[in-house]
Structure formats: structure tokens, C-alpha cells
Simulated scan of single mutants.
Amino acid sequence: MSKGVLLVNLGSPESTDPKDVKKYLDEFLMDPRVIDVPYWFRAFLVKGIVLNTRPKKSAEAYSKIWWEEGSPLIVLSERLQDKIQKQTEIPVDLAMRYGSMTIEKALKRLTDKGVNDILLVPLYPQFAMATTETIEVLAEKLRKEKFPQVKLTSLAPFYNKPDYIEVLSRSIKEKLDTTNYDHLLFSYHGVPERHIRKSDITNSHCQIDGSCCKAQSDAHRFCYRHQCYETTRLVGEELGLKPGTFSTSFQSRLGFDPWLQPYTDRTIERMGKEGIKNMAIVTPAFVSDCLETLEEIAMEGEEIFHEVGGKEFTTIPCLNDRDDWAKVMSNWIGNWIENPSAINTVNLAETQIA
């Protein structure tokens, strides 16, 4: 079989025009794995409320972080793809879950090159319904309907892989070595608490009570909360961080249902009020800098910190297109080429994804 790789990231509006942002938000928020409520209520919420109020504000936020070349997330993903391709003999393509850079177009490009054995790489370290799962669901649906000759295998979440932890830790250390900081905050994208319970394959383990994530369970294979805390723990060990000098929080909540806590914005505010003067913050749920890191954290987060008396607010870049990160990804691909069983993957045709 002829092998190829498909990297998939979240996506971006075509521009900062409110019309383009509205179109993007419509596709993104109408995904039933992003807002997992009955269709009629999701349509009422998204089309009746959000799309009538949020596009202009989101467009203004995008305009603050937009690069001359375009969306930072797209540009950085393309740079990573290019670096990986230069280290890999097989075709490496790139798609976005939402927007014009569709998974279908990328699958077509790969199959046009004769590829019929594809490694799907969701560019998310941790598993979540609204990230990894929605990519795999759509990719497998497209495979069945339009590319039945293709074997599709997905790279499993890599939140605890030693080489990923090593390069993530190195990226943090490089910044901290030139920074005076009192506390390092690991901020992950938030999800509703119900997503954690829905992803619990045991139907009983996840209590979100502060202890279940530490107890051994098969539920951890799909538990976003556990995987986030485990990433923090492993990086803390790798860097030799002292207890009390680092912690975990969750950002970007939407709506009124309970989301994973503690919330990043409130954590930043609380720490500033408690006397933390120098804070560093890293966002390990993202491999590419984007609106949530460049605007929500680096701009809004810093503003909150300064308003409550904080002095130095240091944001640590995502892995983006770092050479060592591209090398890690290339090594994983090389291992898959030589021995598919040597890396942790999922054969999507054999799963029960619905």
C-alpha cells in the first residue's frame, strides 16, 4: 500500500471580515460534538443568538492577531507541514476541521497521488469530543462515502509521550530561563463537564471530584481532564518544578453550563490579588498559536493581571513550527512507515464512532 499523512488542525475564518467570521462560527458551533445539544436547540442558540451577536466582536479579536500572511494558526500549521515534509519521503498534507481547507480536499489530493494508506494526525495532544473525535468522525465518514479504497489510521493522543513532553518542556524552559516568574500557569481549552462524562467508556469512573483523574482507569483513554492534568504533571517532573509554583486551569468557556474548573481568567485575577507579581502562562492544549492564545491569553489575560496589581505577564509560545517539534512528528511518521504497530494508533474502520 502507498502511505501518506494528513495533519488536521482546527481551522480559521477566511479573513477578519465579520461575514467570513460568521460563516466560520456557523460551521464550528453547529458541530454536534462542539455544542452537544439537540439540533433544534443548537440551531436556536447558534443561528438565533450567537450568530447575531458574536461575529463582529470575534472579527475585532481576529483583527488584533491576524498576520500579513493570514491566520496565524493556518500559517503556523503550513510551516510545520513544510518542515515535516522535508524530513519525510511520503506525502504529507494539511487540512482544517472547519473552513475552506477541508479534510475532503486533502484526502482527494492524497489519493490523486496514489496514496491509499493514510495516517491521520489530529494536531491536539489531548483527546476531546470537540477536537480529536470530531476530526476522526468526519474523516471516517468521508472515507466510507468517497474513499472506500483507503485505509485510515489515526494517531492516538500524544499528551504523555516522552518525546512530546521533552520538547514541550524544553520550549517552556527556554522562556523561563530569561523570565522572572512566581507562578507558571498551564491553561488548557475548556470543555463542558458533560463532555467528560460522555467520554467515560466505563460510564461510572468520571466524577470530576479531584480524585478520579488520579485513580487508574480505562476511562483515561478518552478523558480530556485527566490528560490535561497528566500533561501538567509530566512537564512539572521534567522541569523539576516545585509544588505550589505551577497549576492548571481551563479557558474559553461558552454558555451557562458548568465547564471544567478552575477558570483561567478567574485564576489570573485571583493570583494577582493574592500578590503574585510575575506570572508565566503556557497553553499545552494547542500546538499552534491562535486566537485563544494570542488574543484571549496574551492580550486579555495580561490586561486582567495588570488590573489587579500584577507586573510581569509572560506568555510562552505554542510549539508551532519549532525544529525539534517537527523532528518529533517526523520520527513518529517514520516509525509508522517502518512498523505501524510501533506507535499508538487507532484504525478508524474498526472503531464504533457514530
Rank of each mutant, 00 (worst) to 15 (best):
N331H: 14
P38E: 06
A349E: 14
E312I: 05
E145D: 08
P122C: 03
H205F: 02
G190S: 12
G301W: 01
L291P: 12
L142F: 09
H189L: 03
E296N: 09
C212M: 01
T283G: 06
I35A: 00
F127N: 07
L155V: 08
D323T: 15
I316C: 02
F147N: 08
S100K: 11
E303Y: 07
T16D: 08
T293H: 12
T132D: 03
S249C: 15
D36T: 01
C223D: 02
D112N: 15
L348N: 00
A95Q: 05
D177F: 08
P258Y: 10
E14K: 15
E89N: 08
Q261Y: 14
R109G: 00
D93V: 01
Y181N: 02
V282D: 04
K146I: 08
Y229L: 15
P55L: 10
M1Y: 11
A326S: 10
V328D: 12
I165L: 00
F44H: 02
P243F: 11
S63V: 01
D257Y: 13
G114M: 01
S154V: 04
T102L: 05
L45C: 11
C290E: 12
S63R: 10
F28Y: 07
I65W: 05
A130V: 02
N52T: 14
K214I: 04
G301M: 03
M101V: 01
A139L: 03
N331Q: 12
L241C: 03
V346F: 09
I333T: 06
A326L: 01
Q227F: 08
V37K: 07
S252D: 02
I333S: 11
C223L: 05
V46C: 03
V37S: 00
E302R: 14
I281T: 13
L155E: 11
V21M: 05
Q352S: 14
K311F: 03
Y263D: 14
L168P: 01
I103Q: 03
T179N: 04
L76V: 00
Q261H: 13
L6G: 06
H205T: 05
S71T: 09
T179K: 07
Q227D: 09
K19C: 07
P192F: 02
W325S: 06
E269L: 06
I208R: 04
I49V: 13
G272L: 05
N335I: 08
F28Q: 10
D112G: 12
K56S: 14
N9F: 00
T245V: 14
W332E: 14
A285I: 07
F286R: 06
C318I: 00
V282N: 04
I90E: 07
L76A: 02
T315V: 10
L152A: 04
R322M: 13
R109L: 01
G255M: 13
